[in-house]
Nucleic acid binder design. Structure first.
Length: 367
DNA sequence: CACGTGCGGGC
DNA sequence: CCCTGTCGCACGTG
């Protein structure tokens, strides 16, 4: 039976996640605008909004805007501004994920607030049973963690993802196999994952306004315009086709930490001290997960917001941060020599090519 | 393969 | 947005 190959996939998306976590641990916030912020060292209200609850969104506050603008938009509204507490959100996320993975045949967490569930066998490929199961998942998250979520249900990950975005917060949207094309074709093309601001512009210039318009293009033409990978993806995705499996994510491939300096600078001492601090954070993250790494990278964001990366791959994997600091010193000195007239605004450190290790190879262990 | 850049999602 | 932090994908280049 060909129909037996049809899958049933959920995308579970926790609503306005950071802000909802804050609402949950302080019930006073429930009817107020809640704005979770990432503050920087630049003083008073410097920094950006990470997430806002839906009350705040009604006033135009959303992820990415500056904190000072958010405060202007919410002046006199009894709004709550809270610094992001990522460890807390990660704990909440871990508990939710461990609850919902039990509902799946196959499970794939994609971010702190999103996971795919392949429930094909659990619901015998039946969308009526799928709807029942999705309601159970929503009920379990609400009962055990007092959080709402939005769930999209579709025959593949792509359709589940788009469906989940269709009705939120606290939504449940099903797109049955027979409904895929009618659902998809009328949507504006930027609703397709992978079509952002820039791609949308180039598509509009080709008179591609909806996903249906995109589906009318021939594969060969799309490849000419967007390249092999993206062209094939657009061709399939615009027709609701997505064969990628739901599967556990492999180990993280990189760990990075970035920070904004108090003021733009070229001072090598400030830069070096900042890098040292970032190294400590990365070391903590890497060693707690028993990870070694082969590549070390530096990210400089200059005063004009230009991004510059420098990286180096080592002969062998290491967990030793004295080596790292030496490499980063060299990379930063080289950069400052190349760009002697630009000040640095933000600095980041990255390790990649991660490897798991069991034995402690640190020299200090022998001393 | 190594390196640098751009992009995108979305917090 | 006067401007966060973090991660993965893809691509050009050498």
């Amino acid at each position: 039976m060909g129909l037996d190959r049809e899958r049933v996939i959920f995308l579970v998306d926790l609503d306005y996640f950071y802000a909802q976590c804050e609402e949950r641990r302080n019930l006073d916030y429930k009817n107020k605008p809640v704005v979770v912020c990432i503050y920087t060292a630049r003083g008073e209200d410097s920094g950006a909004v990470s997430t806002a609850n839906y009350i705040a969104r009604r006033f135009g506050v959303k992820a990415g805007i500056s904190i000072s603008l958010a405060k202007r938009l919410l002046k006199g509204k009894e709004a709550v501004f809270i610094p992001a507490d990522r460890d807390f959100y990660a704990d909440v996320s871990n508990r939710v994920m461990s609850i919902i993975r039990n509902y799946a045949d196959d499970f794939e967490q994609v971010s702190i607030d999103e996971a795919y569930l392949d429930v094909s066998k659990k619901v015998q490929r039946d969308f009526v049973l799928a709807e029942k199961l999705a309601k159970e998942v929503k009920g379990a998250i609400l009962a055990r963690e007092r959080l709402t979520c939005s769930i999209g249900v579709g025959p593949n990950k792509l359709m589940a993802k788009i469906a989940a975005g269709h009705n939120k917060p606290d939504g449940l949207t099903l797109v049955r196999p027979s409904e895929v094309k009618s659902f998809l074709f009328s949507l504006p093309v930027d609703k397709l994952p992978g079509v952002g601001e820039k791609t949308e512009k180039s598509m509009l210039s080709l008179n591609i306004k909806t996903i249906g318009d995109l589906a009318n293009w021939r594969l060969e033409e799309l490849i000419k315009i967007f390249g092999r990978t993206l062209g094939l993806y657009f061709h399939q995705a615009s027709n609701g086709v997505d064969d990628t499996p739901v599967q556990e994510r492999e180990m993280a491939e990189q760990i990075s930490r970035i920070t904004t300096l108090k003021e733009d600078t070229q001072d090598i001492n400030i830069i070096s001290n900042t890098i040292g601090g970032l190294c400590e954070k990365i070391q903590a993250a890497a060693s707690s997960r028993k990870l070694f790494f082969r590549s070390v990278g530096l990210i400089f964001v200059t005063e004009n917001l230009g991004v510059h990366n420098r990286s180096k791959t080592l002969e062998t994997a290491t967990g030793d941060f004295n080596t790292v600091k030496g490499v980063l010193k060299e990379l930063s000195e080289n950069f400052l020599r190349e760009e002697p007239n630009t000040k640095i605004r933000r600095i980041g450190v990255k390790i990649s090519n991660l490897e798991e290790h069991t034995q402690q190879k640190n020299l200090s262990d022998f001393l």
